[in-house]
């Protein structure tokens, strides 16, 4: 497997000849990685050593066959992921983050736009393998037309991993009756001394929200658009100006 040592910020376009890639983040470093063109990938692995931070931004806009993301996070280290999923047709993604040592942290933010005949299944797992580890997952989706969007995944705090925290949030706004949208994050907890929460919401745009916005002069369509953008736009803060513009134009084109 090809290995890349990250000791400075990097923008990396995957090439179609590579199927597996490992990124190593050295101890005591703080780096940003922007990944694109990951459609042909099968495995993306991240090794974050001790006292290090990886800011990972992934922008996917074609299809994803069956991509696996794995990450191992060391002591006092952190991975912060922003995943902008604007893939079409298919996205089967499985991400697993292992918090292996004391004070290892993971933050995962994903926004997914699913339209037409898209078929998306996104599982994000965080394994708390050490005490005092902290994980947070925020998956936001918009599901339209005949598409299918599933958010799954497990946050698992194993026995003995006290003082860990784990939060999961999965929200999908559904536009059409033919959509299939499911949010089923699972919390698996084998330890008492922890803090955990999870929320899963799948539903149409709230009527009271539409009334509120239209009572200020917005048309129903504009109100829905603004509310929907509210699900997707928060992902922008993980990206540079250039990618933000690309994402913005994709959103506007497809909504």
């Amino acid at each position: 497997m090809k290995e890349i040592v990250l000791n400075q910020d990097l923008e990396y376009r995957c090439s179609s000849s590579e199927k597996e890639l490992t990124f190593n983040v050295a101890s005591n470093s703080d780096v940003s990685l922007l990944l694109s063109d990951i459609e042909e990938m099968e495995l993306l692995n991240f090794e974050v050593s001790d006292n290090a931070t990886l800011h990972l931004a992934i922008f996917a806009q074609k299809f994803l066959k069956n991509v696996k993301i794995t990450a191992n996070i060391g002591e006092n280290s952190k991975i912060i992921v922003y995943f902008a999923d604007f893939t079409v047709e298919r996205n089967h993604l499985d991400a697993s983050i292992n918090l292996n040592k004391d004070n290892a942290r993971a933050e995962w933010h994903l926004a997914s736009l699913s339209t037409q005949k898209d078929d998306k299944e996104i599982a994000v797992n965080i394994y708390h393998n050490s005490p005092n580890t902290h994980g947070r997952i925020d998956n936001y989706g918009v599901c339209k037309e005949n598409s299918k969007l599933i958010f799954a995944g497990i946050s698992h705090i194993i026995k003995g991993c006290h003082q860990s925290t784990s939060h999961q949030n999965a929200k999908i706004v559904v536009f059409d009756d033919d959509c299939k949208a499911i949010a089923r994050p699972i919390l698996k907890i084998d330890e008492n001394d922890i803090e955990a929460s999870h929320a899963a919401v799948v539903g149409k745009v709230n009527d009271e929200h539409i009334f509120y916005l239209t009572s200020r002069g917005l048309s129903v369509e504009d109100a829905k658009l603004l509310i929907t953008l509210g699900y997707l736009k928060p992902i922008l803060k993980g990206f540079n100006e250039q990618v933000r513009e690309q994402i913005n134009s994709l959103i506007e084109g497809r909504l």
């Binding site: 936001y140 509120y212 509210g230």
Partner: peptide
């Protein structure tokens, strides 16, 4: 409104500007 709704993700100023322009 007696109980104004919380609308997550919609930035207040974006909403206010859309409202100002609409009216």
């Amino acid at each position: 409104l007696q109980n104004p709704a919380e609308v997550p993700g919609v930035i207040n100023s974006d909403f206010l500007r859309a409202a100002v322009n609409a009216t």
